[in-house]
């Protein structure tokens, strides 16, 4: 198994699937500004996915393009976190999912800008600048909704309770991570977890939200075992290429 290829699929698929999820809000945002914000963020994520999957294809060396990887794999071959494929729910659910993810991606890209793999470092440097804006946006909404009305507080607390079980998957330290760490391609998962926890705590305190004490964990995405939601996403995402193989416009 090519560890770098696997790793790039993880980072790239997270961007691709969350980008797709956010794009589902297009035309359905609660207010125009948020409709535009969510689709802007979706665009950044899909753009990141393009760079990462393109590089993954080169690393794999089987002549697969970023489009081949995005549109022509089966569900078991996707390596995204279960978190990012969870349904949008209400706006509070979407913002909570986004915050939990952004708070992980910012320190991750900060680490990866120092990667010994220069192309991965370049992608991280580019993506980090965008991710800072994403995090500010989702953190502000988490605070606004959490410390808002009784109803907004309740809804966003429920979102946190629902999504919390998917967060440990971001910090699983497996053979891919340790393999890449040997050559300085990736860095300490423990430190990443600590940075994430710091951001999350700071924001949840301000938002008057309570981290659930239930430690139930749900994972599998990194190994290709997904929730039923991914199948529906792929049915939509891959439809054109499956119905009209090789089509372009």
């Amino acid at each position: 198994m090519n560890a770098l290829f696997e790793y790039l699929l993880r980072v790239g698929d997270d961007s691709l699937i969350l980008g797709h999820r956010l794009s589902e809000w297009c035309g359905h945002g609660p207010i125009l500004e948020e409709d535009i914000a969510m689709t802007n963020i979706a665009l950044d994520l899909v753009g990141q996915a393009t760079s990462i999957l393109k590089y993954a294809g080169e690393v794999e060396g089987k002549n697969r393009s970023e489009d081949d990887l995005a549109f022509l794999r089966f569900d078991r071959d996707y390596r995204n976190l279960l978190l990012v494929e969870q349904p949008n729910g209400d706006f509070g659910m979407t913002m909570m999912r986004q915050f939990l993810f952004d708070a992980y991606r910012k320190p991750l890209f900060e680490q990866l800008t120092n990667s010994s793999d220069s192309q991965l470092a370049a992608i991280a440097e580019k993506s980090l600048k965008e991710t800072k804006y994403h995090l500010r946006h989702s953190a502000e909404w988490t605070i606004r909704l959490g410390d808002g009305t009784e109803e907004s507080h309740q809804r966003v607390q429920e979102a946190l309770d629902t999504l919390w079980r998917y967060t440990p998957e971001m910090f699983i330290d497996d053979e891919i991570e340790s393999e890449l760490r040997k050559t300085g391609v990736t860095f300490s998962v423990e430190e990443l977890h600590a940075s994430w926890t710091k951001i999350a705590k700071e924001v949840f305190d301000e938002a008057t939200l309570v981290i659930p004490d239930n430690n139930w964990e749900q994972s599998g995405g990194r190994k290709g075992y997904h929730s039923e939601h991914l199948g529906y996403i792929l049915a939509e995402l891959q439809y054109m290429q499956r119905a009209y193989p090789g089509m372009k416009w």
């Binding site: 500004e33 914000a37 802007n40 665009l43 950044d44």
Partner: peptide, 13 residues
């Protein structure tokens, strides 16, 4: 600021 995200990725409103 009305929104951090404007008519294109590079602009705020």
């Amino acid at each position: 600021m009305i929104s951090q995200f404007g008519s294109t990725a590079c602009k705020a409103h």
